[in-house]
Every structure is written in C-alpha cells, then in structure tokens.
C-alpha cells in the first residue's frame, strides 16, 4: 500500500509516495527523490554521514523511518547555499580544508550548522570537538573541521552583529 509522505525539503513542500514502509528518510532522499548529497556511511547511526536537519535539529537520517516524519521540515546539504553564495559553514570548510575525500562532508556541515545554532559550544574548541564527535571522518580532517566550525561561528556572529 502506497502512503503519501509530506515533507518540506529545503523549503519546498513535496508529497512523496512511499511504496515501502521500510524506507528510511535517508533512502527516500537518496534513492527516491534523488537528493544524493546526503551520504550513507554505515546505515546504523554510527558515522553521521547521513546527518540532516529535521525541524532545525540534526539527526541521523539512516535511523529515521521516513513515514514517522510526515509533515517535517528537512534541510539537506543541497539546501544551504543560496545560488552561488555558499553558506558560511560551507565556505569555512573549504578555507580550513575541513575535508579530504569529501564523503563525510555533507554530514559534517549539517552537523556544524546545527551545532552553531544550538549555541552551546560557542568558540570553545573543546566543546566544538565534542559536539562534532558524532561525525566520523576517516580521512581524519578533524583539525580542519574544528577550525572551520570556529571560523564559521565567528563569521556568523559578525553577520548577526551587523
């Protein structure tokens, strides 16, 4: 039985027919509607590659049953840049070389966007590291990731002040 799932993805409301109740949010994004920016590294909540924002909060989309999120607002890595203008977190990841192979990067970036919004880590590098520890990076770009998050936090603080 096909059920209709309504999601607002990167600002656009969509009715998505779900032919299989087993589909996770990650597999809906990747295989059914072609938003492949979000990655699958483990499919079991262990790596963070699939991190997306649901109603502004970061979660692992691989352990989210899609049907359970009917009506939710989803932000994926594809929804951050405005046209050619990168989100400050994206720009900071490039500048600080916060990645190598780039596979964990969409998840890292979504996690970083949420971490900054949560406002608990601020500019304390140790809190940033802890807060980013749900995102594994096998290339081990951690120094760059931490630096990028701090850079972006500063840049966004300035924007807010301006």
């Amino acid at each position: 039985m096909t059920q209709i799932l309504n999601l607002t993805i990167n600002g656009t409301s969509q009715d998505i027919p779900i032919d299989d109740p087993r589909a996770t949010l990650l597999d809906v994004l990747r295989e059914r509607i072609g938003l492949t920016g979000t990655k699958k590294g483990c499919d079991r909540g262990q790596c963070g590659a699939c991190t997306v924002l649901i109603d502004g909060r970061r979660i692992n989309s691989c352990l989210a049953l899609a049907l359970s999120y009917d009506g939710a607002e989803i932000t994926t890595v594809e929804g951050l840049a405005q046209g050619e203008l990168l989100h400050p977190v994206q720009a900071a990841f490039i500048e600080a070389d916060g990645f190598q192979c780039g596979y964990c990067t969409p998840g890292q970036i979504m996690s970083a966007v949420a971490l900054i919004a949560e406002g608990e880590a601020g500019l304390d590098p140790e809190r940033v590291r802890e807060g980013m520890s749900g995102n594994l990076c096998r290339c081990a770009a951690y120094a760059g990731i931490t630096e990028a998050v701090l850079k972006a936090t500063r840049a966004m603080n300035r924007e807010d002040a301006a």
């Binding site: 909540g45 963070g48 991190t51 979660i59 352990l63 971490l115």
Partner: peptide, 9 residues
C-alpha cells in the same frame, strides 16, 4: 551518551 544527532532523536 551516543552523539548529538542520536540524542535529538
């Protein structure tokens, strides 16, 4: 426990 993402869910 777990990670920030998991704790949100």
């Amino acid at each position: 426990g777990a990670s920030a993402q998991l704790r949100n869910a």
